[in-house]
Design a protein around this nucleic acid. Structure first.
Length: 404
RNA sequence: GUGGGUGUAGCUCAGUCGGUUAGAGCACCAGUUUGUGGCACUGGGGGUCGUGGGUUCGAUUCCCAUCACCCACCCCA
């Protein structure tokens, strides 16, 4: 038997309705916030991700589905959505036109990781990217939008926020942190010792108990922000407060992608295992120019659809549509004609096989049909059809011409 | 990439201290009023016991390998 590749899943009944519901809900809300749909290719030049996500990140370093295509180009399946949208933004010269642009997207992402709960090799994200707004009001509005999406889906969460500073303050902070880490290096775990040179900020996020205690006195970015970053972060906090949005200040929250600056946020759920981040994002003011565009401030986020599938509360499903069946084989052609007409305006299921009335009703009930319509021996003679409303239990016989 | 766990019916699982026709519940199909759904009862179909090799008179059971899934580390949505 041929199986799907490791870490890749078919999305089908009964999960497909949750999947679709999440995308529809998120899309609807994003549109209300002025976002428009964008679709970008799944395959991009490898350089795009090396220069945006960053070569030091695990995503680029070891998790990409990368290969040389038949034309000799170094390409890979997208491991995340932002880079492609930024590339499209620049390629279509929107950076030169100026103004603000807001995009939402959804689709598969690929990372060659070891699968576990909430982590697949092909997974789906819904994301938004906003270009041209420098103000922290946009960061705030985006957090509000994500909150609206999760509220609409009935999902509980905690919001964590942090500021990662900017090119003014981050490098100085980074230096101070590295110096401090070298002082306590012996007490840190192996991973952290390695991270001092590869990605020192990540050390703050280490889960090893001994590291955490060692790190109590480590300098935090929030205490080392430049004036502008500090003021912007302060404004974000006061906005959240004045709108009564609960949040947690997490000075150790770092995003794994290199392009983030200033605002970083994460929505976290405690109900889905170790992979608890259900949405994450932040500001990336430098990315557009990293990719050869005109410097443009931007902010974005992505949410993991599979991770929130088991969390989302589904609306009650209601009976819908028409079930058509026969008790006499001769009636099937009439039924096919009725089905085609009815399908111009509603969902219709037709059963081709002759069955007892009981079996038909059972089948119609199981598929949650609203109406069950059957042609049996008697109806065939009189040119009628028997119709029962499965909810009100009302039934009647009417002429076929009248029914369609 | 590292560590632990699990693979028996469509699903959830039992079981075989190595031995004849491998079980249950749910689901499916049919019947219990030769035309009335959700419930109940009765019956039925459905399994190369993940795959490959080894040990053995004999393996679903023991051993090895392999694949997949699950959980955690790592990383991240």
């Amino acid at each position: 038997m041929i199986q799907a590749l490791r870490g890749m899943k078919d999305i089908m009944s009964p999960d497909n309705s949750r999947f679709v519901h999440i995308i529809e809900t998120a899309s609807r809300i994003a549109k209300r916030y002025g976002y428009e749909y964008i679709e970008t290719p799944l395959l991009e030049e490898t350089t795009l991700f090396k220069r945006s996500v960053g070569e030091s990140s695990d995503i680029v370093g070891k998790e990409m589905y990368q290969f040389i295509d038949k034309g000799g180009h170094d390409v890979c399946l997208r491991p995340e959505g932002t880079a492609g949208v930024v590339r499209a933004f620049i390629q279509n010269k929107l950076d030169k036109r100026g103004g603000t642009y807001r995009f939402f997207y959804h689709g598969p992402m690929f990372r060659y990781e070891r699968p576990q709960k909430g982590r697949l090799r092909e997974f789906h994200q819904f994301g938004c990217e906003s270009f041209g707004e420098e103000s922290v009001y946009e960061d705030f509005t985006m957090i509000l939008m994500i909150k609206d999406i999760f509220d609409a889906l009935g999902i509980g969460y905690t919001i964590k926020i942090n500021s990662l500073g900017c090119p003014e303050c981050m490098p100085g902070y980074r230096e101070r942190l590295v110096t401090h880490l070298h002082d306590i290096e012996d007490g840190l775990c192996e991973d952290c010792q390695r991270r001092i040179s590869t990605n020192p900020i990540r050390v703050l996020d280490c889960k090893v108990e001994s590291c955490r205690t060692q790190l109590q006195k480590a300098p935090l970015i929030v205490d080392n922000l430049c004036e502008t970053c500090d003021a912007e972060f302060g404004r974000l906090i006061s906005l959240l407060k004045s709108h009564d949005i609960p949040y947690e200040l997490d000075p150790k929250l770092v995003r794994g992608l290199d392009y983030y600056t200033r605002t970083a946020f994460e929505f976290v759920s405690s109900e889905i295992g170790a992979q608890s981040a259900i949405a994450g994002g932040g500001r990336y003011n430098r990315l557009v120019e990293f990719l050869d565009g005109k410097p443009t401030p931007a902010v974005g986020f992505a949410l993991g659809i599979e991770r929130i599938m088991e969390l989302a509360k589904m609306p009650k499903s209601e009976r819908e549509g028409l079930y058509l069946g026969v008790m006499e084989p001769d009636a099937i052609e009439t039924v096919l004609k009725i089905a085609h007409k009815k399908r111009q305006s509603e969902k219709v299921y037709t059963e081709y096989r002759k069955k007892s009335l009981k079996a038909h009703l059972k089948a119609a009930d199981r598929m949650q049909a609203r109406l069950c319509a059957i042609i049996g021996e008697d109806e065939l003679k009189t040119g009628e059809i028997w119709v029962k409303d499965l909810e009100s239990k009302e039934e009647r016989r009417i002429a076929v011409n009248e029914f369609v």
